[in-house]
């Protein structure tokens, strides 16, 4: 059984039909990426999985259990954490407090301290900034806070929405290295990216979305050499 199965979901914003029957699967231990242009429905798919949006049709299952029935805050307790688009850190809280909020869904004393140390090992920069307000950090540091905060929930599945957005190229490399590291430590990752080349370089498999539909689904290696993908998303003629 696949870890996450998204079956033919249709999601609307009011009358706008944003997702027109998206189906994807994510196996445990994988990095799967959704690539596509603006407005293809990548973020909408993530928001539907995390419960922030409800599909009108179709279902989302985690280990075979339907999670559409759960409200967004309950999905977290099922082991799905999200790093929101544009980072979404609690600007007025310190780095430490942000990480503590990430562990909200867990019981006190269940190794939260140790996990925080683990986060500081993963992002040494954050330990230097532990008392600083998240809103005053640089874009790259805020991305680290958002990622670490999501990991503090000890998710089985991590949803990442455009982690490279608005970051300098040198920082993007770092973020993707970290994603790979997180994955190697046992967290499954579903990654939405506009930077298709980077995403495909670390992913196992990928889906190409176009106007609310999956148009291509293949392994990352194949996608990298796929002619359509190269033309449309990799800028290779």
């Amino acid at each position: 059984m696949a870890m996450l199965e998204v079956n033919d979901i249709h999601t609307y914003y009011g009358n706008i039909h944003a997702l027109k029957g998206i189906s994807i699967t994510v196996e445990e231990g994988e990095i799967v990426t959704l690539i596509g242009a603006n407005g293809a429905g990548k973020t909408t798919t993530l928001r539907t999985i995390s419960g922030l949006l409800k599909p009108r049709q179709g279902n989302v299952t985690l280990w075979g259990e339907d999670i559409v029935q759960y409200a967004a805050h309950e999905v977290v307790f099922q082991g799905v954490a999200m790093v929101p688009e544009g980072r979404g850190v609690f600007a007025k809280l310190s780095v430490k407090e942000n990480l503590e909020m990430g562990a909200y869904s867990r019981k006190a004393g269940s190794g939260i301290r140790q996990d925080m140390d683990r986060m500081f090992a993963l992002f040494p920069r954050l330990e230097e900034r532990i008392g600083q307000l998240a809103g005053t950090l640089s874009g790259g540091e805020q991305q680290m806070v958002a990622t670490a905060r999501a990991l503090m929930a000890r998710p089985k599945l991590l949803l990442m929405d455009e982690p490279s957005m608005g970051l300098a190229p040198i920082l993007v490399d770092g973020i993707f290295d970290t994603i790979k590291e997180i994955n190697q430590e046992g967290t499954t990752v579903l990654l939405v990216e506009q930077n298709a080349l980077m995403a495909l370089s670390i992913a196992n498999r990928g889906y190409v979305l176009q106007t609310g539909e999956v148009v291509i689904s293949d392994s990352a290696e194949n996608l990298k050499v796929n002619e359509t993908v190269q033309k449309a998303y990799l800028g290779i003629d």
Binding site: L52, A71, H73, G88, F90, K92, G102, Y104, A153
Partner: peptide, 21 residues
């Protein structure tokens, strides 16, 4: 108190942290 603080800061993110708004 923490739930209130998180909600005041950003409702969507608070919900994504597992807070029942």
């Amino acid at each position: 108190g923490r739930q209130w603080m998180a909600m005041r800061e950003d409702e969507d993110v608070a919900e994504a942290m597992g807070i029942n708004l």
